[in-house]
Design a protein around this nucleic acid. Structure first.
Lengths: 192, 192
DNA sequence: GTCTATATTCGGATAGAC
DNA sequence: GTCTATCCGAATATAGAC
């Protein structure tokens, strides 16, 4: 792997763990096994490197989610698969956490991939719910946009309560609570 | 207001806005209109002051929530009131955001009020759901713990998606989505 | 109780040699 | 491309005068 790649990967890790404000160029260099000069040769500075790292993380997150969304099964099944997919719950969401970083939110360029990713996620879920309603897999009364927003919020908030508790239990409970509620709105489809 | 109080209040604001890592003693002093010596006279350092601030914020948050919980109405009504209560959505949750602060999570003393507050919130909501089920205000099948976890996660995650979007809309949608789902499980109670 | 001076380390970067 | 030297201001305090 190239030095630039190692720098980006180290930055991804540190942003996930400590956020933007809590991540120093020196820490990045040490984790990547690269010197100062090397870092400033490949990137113009901390914001530039952070941007590359955030973009890469966003891309990976979309790919992981899309794998669940495009699987086979009913709308409910696919949403369920997404909610229950394996996660490193106690590390939190590498994109969602950036939302609490004032320097990220204040900088339009750094913020853009964060906004973009969570917007995409909601829209994609809304699309799946809408499909489900159309096919009779969900009750007609279920609002796609609202439901999608609830799914994303449950995940993001699940990370928060899990980290507060120091345990994945509250995350799992929140997800199960939502699935219980959603299941009620997913009638067994009558055989054709 | 005393100097110590102004220092605590300034710290509350800054922790909310910038987190622990992003908040410097100097910034606190300036906002409070106090000098270095003054701050170090009243508090042993940044962690000590932060602890006082976090405890105060936690106390205020519990009081605000309890006002909704102890109001009159059915269990659904009270949960609804809590979900819809006025919030400064784009500022996020002053307690929940600390969850992403590595230095807070790593320090048991600083972390304790955060854990405590969110644990209390979930337990209190579970109690309300359980009451509702008992009184027939909610379906018998509704799991109190899971449902409570979903409510807290929806709020916490709602803040995340709202900050990402730069708009309160996703927060409101997530809350409405959850309320839609919950309403289905709250049958109109037959007149006695 | 509050102020000013001083100290140490870190954050974030530039310059120039190799 | 990578390394070392150097720079300047901020972060987080301590010491001692008033």
């Amino acid at each position: 792997m190239s030095t630039a790649d190692r720098l980006i990967e180290s930055t991804q890790d540190l942003l996930w763990e400590r956020g933007y404000v809590g991540t120093s160029p020196k820490a990045i260099q040490q984790r990547a096994g690269a010197g100062q000069g090397s870092m400033y040769h490949h990137f113009s500075g901390k914001p530039d490197l952070a941007l590359a790292a955030i973009r890469r993380t966003a891309e990976q997150m979309r790919a992981t989610a899309e794998a669940c969304f495009s699987a086979s099964g009913t709308a409910y099944d696919r949403i369920r698969a997404y909610l229950l997919r394996e996660r490193e719950v106690l590390r939190g969401c590498p994109i969602g956490r950036l939302t609490m970083d004032p320097d990220i939110i204040a900088d339009p360029e750094l913020r853009e991939p964060v906004t973009e990713t969570l917007d995409w996620l909601r829209a994609r879920l809304a699309q799946i719910v809408a499909e489900g309603v159309e096919r009779g897999e969900f009750d007609a009364g279920l609002d796609p946009e609202r439901t999608a927003a609830s799914v994303v919020a449950t995940i993001q908030g699940g990370y928060v309560v899990a980290r507060a508790a120091g345990s994945t239990a509250p995350f799992d409970a929140a997800v199960q609570g939502l699935l219980d509620l959603l299941a009620t709105r997913a009638p067994r489809r009558p055989a054709p």
